[in-house]
């Protein structure tokens, strides 16, 4: 199980990387943390002519805050995202999601930008971006685009990225007063892809929850913002919210787990997360097992 032959370059600047990607067109593939791409190469599921390694571009990594926005460089490793003091303080949702991302050795190497650009529908960061109302910052040859997460994830491994563009950063608005969040993921074993997961943000007041954003993952071809379910919960109707998921989610029917199971589990998770957000108990829950 050895990768097919390809060329490799490791440019030292973003401009140089973009120039290589532009020059080689569809034959070139950017290499971020590589935790999915190198797997695909080893299995010969991918056969690019050129890998453009983004790991030597200093400006792509790091976490900073400016005017109510936390900016996370695309090449920031999963572990550095979730353990950054700024993230733990400002974006506890992301810190809560971190332990669910694969295993320590994968978290040490994989990057948030790579994960967002790959858009695997069963992974944590895309859903967190959606729940937190993040903006995906992308660069193509000479131009920068800023794309709302709501408009970024378009389908199975499909995003709004144009050929030659790469994700350079993700910007998260700092949650304001009364903000609450919730996170829960069900996977068969620690670190497995989610059977179903939910990243949620909102605002809690004496009258209940508002501004709810419920981003489900593992239950469609992309992370899904369940708007009708959110509206029902804001109206105090959990049962209605759970029912609404039948229309909002489109879970895969895979040989190990039926679609009906995922839909059922999504409803259970919704009930648990919404309950915790409503009650102000923000701890995240983990569940693994058979």
């Amino acid at each position: 199980m050895k990768a097919p032959d390809f060329a490799y370059a490791r440019p030292a600047s973003l401009d140089a990387a973009l120039a290589l990607l532009a020059e080689h067109g569809e034959d070139a593939v950017p290499l971020a943390g590589g935790q999915s791409l190198v797997t695909a190469l080893n299995m010969r599921l991918s056969a690019p002519g050129l890998l453009v390694d983004l790991n030597a571009i200093p400006e792509l990594a790091g976490v900073s805050e400016d005017e109510g926005v936390v900016r996370i460089g695309a090449m920031t490793r999963h572990r550095d995202v979730g353990t950054a003091a700024l993230v733990r303080e400002r974006l506890p949702l992301l810190a809560a999601a971190l332990p669910h991302i694969a295993h320590p050795a994968i978290r040490n190497r994989g990057t948030i930008g790579g994960s967002v650009a790959l858009a695997d529908p069963a992974t944590e960061w895309p859903a967190c971006c959606l729940a937190a109302g993040a903006t995906i910052v992308v660069r193509g040859p000479g131009t920068e685009r800023r794309i709302a997460a709501d408009a970024f994830f378009l389908g199975l491994y499909t995003t709004a990225l144009e050929p030659g563009e790469i994700v350079t950063a993700i910007e998260f608005p700092v949650p304001g007063d009364g903000a609450v969040w919730g996170f829960e993921e069900l996977s068969r074993r620690h670190g497995d892809y989610a059977l179903v997961g939910l990243a949620a943000t909102g605002r809690r007041s004496a009258v209940g929850l508002s501004d709810l954003r419920l981003a489900f993952f593992g239950v469609a071809d992309r992370p899904v913002l369940a708007r009708a379910a959110a509206a029902a919960i804001e109206a105090g109707d959990l049962t209605g919210a759970q029912a609404a998921l039948a229309d909002e989610l489109d879970p895969p029917d895979d040989p190990a787990t039926r679609a009906a199971t995922r839909l059922h589990l999504a409803r259970v998770v919704l009930g648990r997360v919404a309950g915790r957000m409503r009650d102000g108990t923000v701890k995240e829950e983990t569940s693994h097992g058979a």
């Binding site: 590589g34 935790q35 190198v38 080893n42 390694d53 050795a105 994968i106 040490n108 190497r109």
Partner: peptide, 9 residues
């Protein structure tokens, strides 16, 4: 840091 040698070139 711990990494997978099979997932780095």
């Amino acid at each position: 840091r711990a990494v997978r040698a099979c997932l780095m070139l």
